[in-house]
Amino acid sequence: MNDMRVTEREVDDLEIKMKARNVDVFYGETHAIKHVDVDIRDKTVTAFIGPSGCGKSTFLRCLNRMNDTIDVARVEGEITLDGEDIYDKRVDPVQLRAKVGMVFQKPNPFPKSIYDNVAYGPRIHGLSRNKADLDEIVERSLRRAALWEEVKDRLAAPGTGLSGGQQQRLCIARAVATNPEVLLMDEPCSALDPIATAQVEELIDELRSRFSVVIVTHSMQQAARVSQKTAFFHLGELVEFDSTSKIFTNPDDPRTESYITGRIG
């Protein structure tokens, strides 16, 4: 616990990377997210927890405008990245997503080789000058995703042939390869077995040294293990947002306590 306190104090000094103010999301007539304020700090793991359907994934998808692809979704309020409104008319979501990467619930490697999966982002964003550069990016990303040792001999094999845990780490490597500043993870372990989950969690902790990570999870243990800050969502509202240890040991809101102790969920 002591260690955790120390890191958390450090965390509070870090600069605020993303800031959400008064965010509302509508799906057609449904009011999915209500007046949410959240600060995402740099080099920090922020966890969103809450019962299913509470809007935590919806909110996560607002942070890199993935909701744009859904016709009926409408976002109000202000979300900034480094002080710039990401819903400004002048912002190109493509450029935004290069800075705010995303990893999804189900591993979704492209039906291409492992190499091409990781090289996809650098290629479309033009991050490498030549083949050697690209090779280096791919290797570095796979190392960061703790996958290099397992796949270095079969980079040309299809990514879909890996095991579930490996696939998810490949997707993380793919996201890391574009050099994002924020990495969003939508229940990245829900489709994995416990061993693979442990590997991914370890990885998340390492990623924190370079990026700001936001993770949505339905597992409270996971939130407690990997995050420094935790936000609890319930019925589209942000009920409580504080340091992880505070949320899990001494929450302010009775609803948070009920959820933590297992009475709602």
Partner: peptide, 26 residues
């Protein structure tokens, strides 16, 4: 599957890049 599109958009690909490099090959 939609998840492949999401994966590509999530990496900052444009729609045409997604179509040409992910959807059509798939």
């Amino acid at each position: 599957p939609q998840s492949l599109r999401d994966g590509s958009y999530g990496l900052g690909a444009t729609q045409s890049e997604t179509v040409k490099q992910v959807i059509l090959p798939a």
